[in-house]
């Protein structure tokens, strides 16, 4: 009996996301819990970075998971990755929330990190925590689509083809978005170089 339980737990741990979703649809609550533990933290990390608000990120995760459970009986294995499907829902939910914000003021970069006269030197001097905060503040100044693309690429570690699927755009469009985002980030982080005496040479 105990051996059976261990085998079952191991099978759940090793199962691909799609198999867990199918098992959940067939009444296996343990499979649903394992899938929740895999998907929810990733969606939360993405939403918190994009929205800059943990409470809103929790709402996005909850909505995403509810939609996942509702869709479970219709899931067909092999057609898509569960995580890709979940990210796609989360991207759309975040986009809706960002549109509704419009007039909401964004966090100013100089409220978080000291203004960098030389970006590289400034980053070298920052603590790890300050680096993360500085990047979060700079992300908040990006256009929505650029922010979503760069978070998925450089913070969530997804490939460009995956991001293309998630954002429903071509791979080239993803490359363009992330390239523009990186330029914007560098500009945002080093945007005060003139008043700080930083010379482009």
């Amino acid at each position: 009996m105990g051996q059976d339980n261990r085998t079952s737990a191991s099978a759940v741990d090793d199962a691909p996301d799609g198999a867990l979703l199918v098992a959940f649809a067939n009444g296996d609550a343990a499979a649903g819990r394992e899938l929740l533990d895999r998907i929810a933290p990733r969606i939360f990390g993405y939403a918190a970075r994009v929205l800059g608000d943990r409470t809103e990120a929790e709402d996005v995760v909850q909505d995403t998971m509810l939609r996942l459970w509702k869709m479970a009986p219709d899931w067909r294995q092999g057609e898509a990755q569960v995580s890709t499907w979940a990210y796609r829902v989360a991207v759309n939910l975040c986009t809706d929330r960002l549109r509704k914000r419009q007039s909401r003021p964004q966090v100013a970069l100089d409220q978080v990190a000291e203004p960098p006269a030389d970006l590289a030197t400034a980053v070298e001097r920052m603590t790890e925590s300050a680096r993360a905060d500085a990047l979060q503040a700079a992300l908040g100044q990006l256009p929505d689509r650029q922010r979503q693309a760069v978070v998925l690429r450089h913070l969530e570690g997804l490939s460009n083809p995956e991001i293309a699927q998630i954002m429903d755009i071509g791979v080239e469009a993803v490359e363009s978005l992330t390239a523009r985002a990186k330029r914007s980030l560098k500009a945002a982080l080093g945007g005060r170089k003139e008043e700080l005496g930083y010379d482009d040479g």
Binding site: F44, R49, R54, E128, A132, L155
Partner: peptide, 8 residues
């Protein structure tokens, strides 16, 4: 930032 992910 990636080393300090936002976690629920």
């Amino acid at each position: 930032a990636a080393a300090r992910p936002e976690r629920p």
